[in-house]
Design a protein around this nucleic acid. Structure first.
Length: 307
DNA sequence: AACCAGGACACAA
DNA sequence: TTGTGTCATGGT
């Protein structure tokens, strides 16, 4: 920032600061976008609420998001350029009402969409998403957040942040993690997931799997390629397909969604997991992944003692 | 203080 | 194909 001031041709310092500030701030007009629900719904793990806004890291940028009257206000620590990167990440141009209209018109979905109004899906970086979900197995979201934070601190690159903020780090590349040791990764509290992450990062750094190529694949082919990675089963693969690649019909079934499906659609009946998976592929429509996210968040927000 | 968490994997039957 | 034990770690 200081360097850019010095090299600019501004006539006055005040004008210069104003212009720099403008380049670090923008508004995305949109409605029905609940930042809080979206950023705490277990798809992204690097966001913290501060001063009535949400602060996190996207790619190599510190970002602060707040909900304004006109839409979402975004602030960055360095100029945001054309902002296409953030518009795409937030998926602000997606028509949520049209998506909700495709959901089955049943009591559970009505309850979930009413309770979680404004919940959105993001389009995240495939590697960060993949690595995060390799680390997610049988972990609570709060713990995943801690593991990811430690991983970024230890192996990421320091980023520009506004004055007074804690230091922030980029999500480490597969190449960087590939050079780590299993012990170094275990020090980030990821336990038995460390060898999975290490082996997966080495396969990607070594070119055995090109994550960028998967977006052109069919969902079945992309899923099959992801599942060749150690630590990646059906559930983790579906999370990456849905949260990073935008395959709207990917339907990750974790313990919460499994509980929701059994309770809401097959009460007091024993149903095989495979049959439930088949049910999800047909019942929830073309945006079933979105429906899944509503069920997941609804179950977690309204968790009951009765299990 | 047990129980569980956005699971995957090797192995058994 | 479906079921079971195992793998770390810490929140609730």
């Amino acid at each position: 920032m200081v360097a850019s001031f010095a090299s600019s041709s501004c006539l006055s310092a005040a004008t210069c600061i104003e212009e720099a500030s403008a380049r670090c701030r923008t508004v995305f007009p949109c409605r029905d976008y609940d930042l809080s629900a979206t950023l705490t719904s277990g798809q992204a793990f690097r966001w913290n609420c501060r001063d009535a806004g949400w602060e996190g890291v996207i790619d190599a940028r510190w970002v602060r998001l707040t909900s304004g009257a006109d839409g979402i206000v975004a602030e960055t620590a360095s100029p945001g350029g054309d902002w296409a990167w953030l518009k795409g990440w937030l998926r602000v141009e997606e028509n949520l009402a049209e998506i909700l209209a495709t959901f089955p018109d049943d009591q559970p979905m009505r309850a979930a969409t009413t309770a979680c109004r404004g919940l959105r899906l993001l389009r995240q970086d495939p590697w960060e998403c993949l690595a995060s979900f390799i680390l997610s197995s049988t972990k609570q979201i709060v713990q995943i957040r801690q593991i990811v934070a430690l991983l970024c601190e230890r192996f990421g690159e320091p980023l520009d942040v506004p004055p007074g903020r804690e230091p922030q780090y980029s999500f480490p590349t597969p190449e960087r993690i590939a050079t780590a040791t299993e012990a170094g990764l275990r020090a980030c509290k990821m336990g038995f997931r460390a060898p999975y992450l290490l082996a997966a990062s080495r396969m990607i750094a070594g070119g055995e799997l090109d994550l960028g190529a998967l977006s052109a694949f069919s969902i079945a082919d992309a899923r099959a390629r992801l599942m060749e990675l150690p630590g990646v089963g059906r559930k983790v693969a579906d999370c990456v397909l849905l949260f990073a690649y935008g395959f709207q019909e990917a339907f990750p079934v974790d313990v919460w969604v499994m509980k929701a499906l059994r309770r809401l659609y097959f009460p007091r009946r024993r149903v095989a997991p495979k049959r439930l998976q088949r049910f999800t592929a047909t019942y929830f429509g073309p945006y079933s992944g979105y429906a899944q996210q509503y069920l997941f968040h609804y179950m977690r927000v309204h968790r009951r003692a009765d299990d």
